[in-house]
Simulated assay, not measured.
Amino acid sequence: DSVEQFEKFRITTGKVHGNKEKEGDLKTPEGIYYIIGKISGDKLPEKYGPLALVLNYPNPVDRIFGRMGSDIWIHGRNEEIVDRQTEGCISLENNYILNLASFITINKTPVIIVDSLDNLSSSEYQQKIRVWSDIIQSWRNAWEAGNTSTYFGFYSHFFKDVSGRDLQFFKNRKKALETLYKWKKITIDHIVVLSSEYEAHVKFNQTYLCPKFYSTGVKTLTFVPVDSTWEIVKEQFISTIPRVYISESIKKFLELWKSNWESKDIERYISLYDSSFSVKGLSLQEWEQYKRRIFSQTNKIRVNLGSPEIDSSDKMTWKVSFKQDYQSDSHNDIGQKILTVYGYPGDFKILSEDWSTLGKK
């Protein structure tokens, strides 16, 4: 869908036309900003009206290109609105600033300041999203494949991470991770694009899975135009859940598998197996029939598992090896079991089982 207009207000801006460059130039900045605070009227000079919304000017892109200054607000006005009357702020009538404030969430509501506004049709807006989606998918593909030359090509030499470290630090860290982890799986969805002449912010949901951990959250890439392309100058990832470590997640999965086995809950037990599962020539359906028969003939089952060894060489797949001690009223056995487990934390499935007996107890 295209952007929907809720309200329209008359405003006034800086006395001098053009994008702000320095303190005191009387220009209003252009770009993408966020409201980072509010100042109530009792703390403001009377000319600013009942409220001021504080913008994060200069933002990271402004700092990269040396655009400086401070105290850029959206505020009220105890005078008639006339074009180009401020020292760089955006000003509107008092009742309008109070109305506008009702739409604001601090640190989350974006403010796009442009010299002129292009009203895109729904089809034009969707085409814009498709172009950016193609860029982001190409970036993701290069990252997931470990194609560092292509991946680093998306980044500007102006790049700084959230801690202010430069592109070379970023490259060194990514190369080290490529060596450390044999594979990674990255998914992205719900892409949102905010853009102006000077920058673009692309926000999306991201999941990252590697042999050691799983993370999910929201990533924002900030791009600037360079010649005929867009390059990344900032990258921020905010987790929506704490990082999940694969070893702990697989141990919990084993406990669930063991519990379902001991309770002889065949539906829950079989639900942990992938539809492609096979063992000793048995399909999943045949395995279920076999287990149903065992469960029906057994009054009590106890399974003790040793500490698992977990290794991954294939994408999203782990070999889980452990000592298993099986006890029932009709059969006791002890041996080494290897489960091949596939998937994500919270959605693991067993692909295969290997069993080597060490002898009956």
Rank of each mutant, 00 (worst) to 15 (best):
V3C: 00
T13N: 01
G14T: 05
V16P: 07
G18F: 00
G18W: 09
N19D: 13
E21A: 09
E21D: 13
E23C: 02
G24P: 04
T28Y: 11
E30N: 12
G31L: 05
Y34H: 08
I39M: 11
K43C: 02
G49S: 02
G49N: 01
L51T: 06
A52F: 07
A52T: 02
L53G: 02
V54P: 08
V54N: 05
L55R: 10
P60N: 13
F65W: 14
S70F: 13
H75D: 10
E80V: 04
I81G: 01
I81Q: 04
V82H: 10
E93K: 14
N94K: 06
N94S: 03
I97L: 01
I97N: 01
L98Y: 03
L100Q: 03
L100W: 02
S102W: 02
V111D: 00
L117G: 03
N119L: 15
I129S: 04
S133N: 12
I135G: 02
S138I: 05
W139K: 01
N141S: 15
E144D: 02
T150Q: 11
F154N: 08
K160F: 07
V162Y: 06
L167E: 10
K171E: 04
A176N: 13
L177T: 08
K184D: 06
D189A: 07
H190R: 14
H190W: 00
I191C: 09
V193G: 07
S196H: 06
E197Q: 12
V202H: 11
K212N: 13
Y214H: 10
S215P: 00
T222R: 12
S228I: 09
T229K: 15
F237P: 01
F237K: 09
S239M: 13
S239L: 15
T240S: 15
Y245Q: 07
I246H: 03
I250G: 09
F253W: 08
W257Y: 14
W257I: 00
S259M: 13
S259A: 08
N260M: 00
E262G: 04
S263M: 00
E267C: 00
L272A: 05
Y273L: 01
D274Y: 01
D274H: 09
D274Q: 00
F277M: 05
S278V: 03
L282K: 15
L284Q: 13
R293F: 10
R293D: 11
I294H: 01
S296P: 00
V303C: 10
I310E: 05
K315M: 09
M316N: 12
T317M: 07
V320S: 07
Q324W: 08
Y326L: 05
Q327R: 14
Q327I: 12
Q327L: 15
S328I: 09
D333C: 05
K337I: 04
T340I: 12
Y342S: 08
G346W: 04
F348M: 02
D354M: 12
W355E: 08
K360F: 07
